[in-house]
Design a protein around this nucleic acid. Structure first.
Lengths: 139, 139
DNA sequence: ATAATATCCTACAGAAAGGATAGGAATTAA
DNA sequence: TTAATTCCTATCCTTTCTGTAGGATATTAT
C-alpha cells in the first residue's frame, strides 16, 4: 500500500521543472543534481512523463524538458496514475471495469470502490502548483 | 499502492467468522473451504489476527477462532493496519512520527499526510458489520 | 563540419516484497 | 488414546522495485 519511488520522484521532477523552467528547457542532469536523485533512473522516469504527454522535450545542447501546461493544470492524481500505472488499492477496481467474475456477489467490492474513490478525489483536487506553493490545507 | 492478499484474506477471514460463529469456534479449515483460500496461508494470517488481539483461539478438537468483540466494533482500518503492517502511502508518514530529516522543508510531506488521513478516515468509519451487511453507502 | 551536450531506447541485475508451502510441536475434546 | 486443531517458524518461488549500463540519435554552438 505504498507509492513507489518512481511516483515520488516523478512528482519531484514535475515540481523541479515547474520551479526552474524560465523560458527554456530543464535538463535531467540539473534535476538530478538539485534533487539528489540518480540520473539514470530519472531518465527512465522522465521518459514516461514525456511519452505520457505531460512534458515536451528538446534534444541536444540546451535541451531538456518543459511542462505542457501551467502547473495549476496538473493534478497530482494524473501524475501519479501515469507513473505508478494505477493508484487502485486492489486489482479489481483498476480501469473502471470494476470487478472480477464474482463482482455481483462480492461483499468487499463496494469497500474497494469507495476507497479508490476517496484517494482519487483527494489527489485530483490538488494541483502541482498547490504542492509547489505549499498550499495544502488542513492537517 | 495496493492492499496485499494478506490484508484482503484477513478481511475475508473476519467476515467469515462474523457470519459463522454461532456459540462455538470457527476452524481455519472451514474458512479455507468456504472462502476457497489456501489453508496454510490462512493459518499464518489468522495467527497475526490472533496475536494482534482481534481473535480468541481454542486448540484441539472443535477448536478454532472467534471474534473478541461484536462485528460492529471492528473498523476495517484496524484489521488492515494490523495485517498489512501499515496503510501509510509513503514511509515517512508511518507511525505518526511524520517525516524524515528533511521534514521541515519537504514540500510533499503535507500531501502524503493528507492522503494518509483520507484513507484512514474512510476505513475507520466502516465496520466489519457494515461490510457483512453490504451496508456501504454511495458509489 | 565537428564537438559537446542532451534525449532516447531497452536490456539487464540485484534487492526486497509478496504469496504461499512444509513439517512438525503443542493442546484439547471425545 | 486418537483425531482434530492451533501454533511456530523456516524455507522457497515469483514478481515487483529500484536502479544501472551502454549506446544510438538528435541538436546546437563554435
Amino acid at each position: 500500500m505504498m507509492v513507489s519511488s518512481k511516483g515520488r520522484y516523478a512528482l519531484q521532477v514535475m515540481m523541479d521543472i515547474a520551479k526552474n523552467e524560465g523560458d527554456g528547457y530543464v535538463s535531467v542532469a540539473d534535476i538530478s543534481e538539485r534533487q539528489h536523485l540518480p540520473l539514470k533512473y530519472l531518465e527512465v522516469i522522465v521518459g514516461i512523463l514525456n511519452k505520457g504527454g505531460m512534458l515536451s522535450s528538446l534534444r541536444g545542447k540546451n535541451g531538456g524538458y518543459r511542462l505542457n501546461k501551467a502547473p495549476d493544470e496538473y493534478s497530482i492524481s494524473e501524475i501519479l496514475n501515469l507513473t505508478e500505472g494505477s493508484l487502485a488499492p486492489v486489482e479489481c477496481v483498476k480501469g473502471h471495469t470494476a470487478g472480477c467474475e464474482n463482482a455481483a456477489t462480492c461483499m468487499t467490492l463496494p469497500l474497494w470502490i469507495g476507497l479508490d474513490r476517496v484517494i482519487e478525489d483527494y489527489l485530483s483536487n490538488i494541483s502541482l502548483q498547490d504542492v509547489v506553493d505549499g498550499n495544502i490545507k488542513d492537517f
